[in-house]
Nucleic acid binder design. Structure first.
Lengths: 195, 195
DNA sequence: CTTTGATTTGAACGCCCGTTCAGTTACCCG
DNA sequence: CGGGTAACTGAACGGGCGTTCAAATCAAAG
């Protein structure tokens, strides 16, 4: 072997992922061409195929990796034995922080599910469901003791929709800091479940 | 004049709108071609241009009309003088009912905003803000008396995200009927604002 | 039944798409 | 410093895109 494997690919590979992420979030998967992604990286379109077999893989890998990181980070942030009230607080804080750091990925995860081929879609849907289960487990554990929730499944969906919605409007230059938003949404989440 | 104006256009025009709506919701604006829309209607692609000047107009008119109907229906459903608690109830019920009857339009309204040209985007954004204001006005009117809300603007965004989220998962064949969902979300909305 | 104009067809316009691949370049190893 | 291969270029492939428009079709009015 002469040239060390990946002497440039260490750089180009991630740059392609990053460019795809930004462009997909801004214009949508279908509206972004391989040539646009390549131009953003400063390379010809053909070069992308040294890193990814199809355009579809580019999207799927972004989402799959995102969901894997979400699940791993959630498990790290949420102590399993904590009492329900503290667990809900931790979940809310974690969810807002994690998602506000990745607004482009969150956006794509919701908007471009329909652009995934069936198998890939099923994979992401399974990961998402696994994440939602973490919250529902907390609500079930506290149901009737720390919380008053009529329907834990519905409360889970309501909470996640409410919390994830922050990524649609939050701006760093806005009226509220991330810490403000976190505190106020925590209060609303507690109220919602009757904590 | 020989043939009566619109002898077929009365039929073809709406059918084009309907086909565009369904296809945009399923595959996304950028991924749907004029030829696909035409095929769905049973017509050649060129015929669409008797009804719409560009593809962009097709999307914009769907969203603009949807938002106009939303605003008009909201004004009809929400009595202006009602007391805050009753007004919130009415808003929640109205929002869920209206949006569950139009899931495709709701989906497009959130996903394809980025596909709108700047002027068209600004128009829809203005309409949406106008709608949100109706809820915030209710929260402000009841703040401290019927409700306990830390931040009426944030509570507005949280409520709308929570309520609109229903359109992402609700299925007629599912565990809960629309009436069930409406009742349970109403309870959660009340709890969220401390009613 | 002919006229008339709304409606639609069908072909064409130039352009961009995702993907492939033979050839070129650039760099590390011996 | 020369050899070898990873990385990349640049052109090409077939095909689909949005849009235009002359010509054909159709249905009611006179």
């Amino acid at each position: 072997m002469a040239r060390k494997t990946g002497s440039h690919s260490d750089i180009t590979g991630p740059r392609i992922q990053q460019a795809a992420l930004t462009l997909f979030a801004r214009h949508g998967y279908a509206a972004v061409s391989m040539r646009q992604i390549a131009a953003e990286v400063g390379v010809q379109a053909g070069a992308i195929y040294n890193y990814v077999p199809h355009k579809q893989t580019l999207l799927f890998e972004l989402l799959r990796t995102h969901m894997e990181e979400l699940l791993a980070a959630a498990d790290a942030a949420l102590a399993p034995g904590a009492d329900p009230a503290a667990a809900l607080d931790a979940f809310v804080r974690f969810h807002i922080r994690f998602h506000l750091e990745r607004v482009d990925l969150v956006f794509i995860s919701y908007m471009e599910l329909r652009s995934l081929e069936p198998d890939n879609f099923a994979h992401i849907a399974r990961q998402r469901h696994s994440y939602e289960t973490r919250l529902e487990t907390i609500l079930q554990a506290g149901q009737g003791v720390a919380f008053r929730v009529e329907d834990t499944k519905l409360a889970t969906l309501a909470l996640i929709a409410m919390l994830t919605g922050v990524t649609n409007w939050f701006r760093d230059a806005g009226r509220l800091s991330k810490a403000d938003v976190e505190a106020k949404y925590l209060a609303m989440a507690r109220a919602l479940v009757g904590a």
